[in-house]
Write a protein that binds this DNA or RNA. Structure first.
Lengths: 158, 158
DNA sequence: AACCTTGTTAAGAATAATTCTTATGTTGAA
DNA sequence: TTCAACATAAGAATTATTCTTAACAAGGTT
């Protein structure tokens, strides 16, 4: 890596960390060393690390951090929209309907709903350069959010 | 459900089961009661059941079936392209890059690669009626397949 | 129809991923 | 500085999935 690139990256990283701090404050989430370090790690990585991998990296700076803190923090960062979770919740679900359609998955209860493309909509186009990585077997488009039932339930309990 | 619908559905189910048997034979997979019952259960369900849920349903017909058999069978059915797995493998991965892009996920090693949309490509359009189900927080398009590294490794071991 | 060969299964132990419990520590508002 | 609320570490507990092993059964062969 060239020095000027490093400078650029360092600048950008600092800016992102500041933005993260501001976001935390705006949500009345406390700015802890653990949260900052986890965010820095993730913001610097291009490897889509697992919770375990983030844990290993952060540990070098904060040897006493617990894996649970990493899980909790990643979840709250996802909630805040600062990071993106690749994949889904831990439980696999299956579908025997092979006609082209997508899924709406509730981030709260895990329920899965079928979503069919609008008639006449262009079919999903696969980016060309994907073949650089390997052989594609299938595509999976899912939308995540909170289903009506969970939203209603969350409203009531207040 | 109206009687004639049931007849239609039953007919269609039988046809699908026959096709499944044929597929098994063509792949020299043995046609066992367990496989048939698991396939029937899944083909009749619109609930995107989990392995556990399939297990519970199949158990009513085959009280001695094991959960492990359900897992094994679902995996082989996915491999055969008969069912679709909603979501991903069990390990969560995270990404701090929030610019619009997709992922290519290796079904073998779990590695995640970034895939960027082609310049000028229309952005992903969200089907209108998705709002029937709840509030969408984000969209996730992923392609699954075998990455070059795993393909090479699989080739060697033969 | 009995007979193998080999793939398949049940049972339960083992592992992997994630979450919970509880006591202690820390942030940031007053 | 004080203190309430929130966050953390540690490790136990839970959940989801996979492995191990011995018994079993499918389907080709005789």
């Amino acid at each position: 890596m060239y020095p000027h690139e490093q400078t650029e990256n360092t600048k950008e990283l600092k800016a992102r960390v500041e933005a993260f701090k501001a976001l935390c404050r705006s949500r009345s989430l406390r700015v802890t060393e653990q949260r900052l370090e986890i965010f820095r790690t993730l913001a610097q990585s291009k490897a889509h690390p697992s919770a375990e991998a983030v844990f290993a990296a952060v540990r070098k700076k904060l040897p006493n951090i617990s894996l649970d803190t990493v899980y909790r923090t990643l979840a709250s960062m996802e909630e805040a929209g600062v990071v993106f979770r690749v994949g889904l919740s831990t439980k696999a679900r299956f579908d025997a309907d092979l006609t082209p359609h997508y899924h709406f998955v509730c981030m709260d209860c895990g329920e899965v709903y079928d979503v069919f493309p609008q008639p006449g909509a262009p079919s999903l186009l696969v980016p060309q350069d994907i073949n650089r990585f390997g052989e594609v077997k299938n595509a999976n488009l899912q939308f995540r959010g909170i289903c009506n039932r969970c939203r209603a339930a969350a409203g009531k309990e207040k």
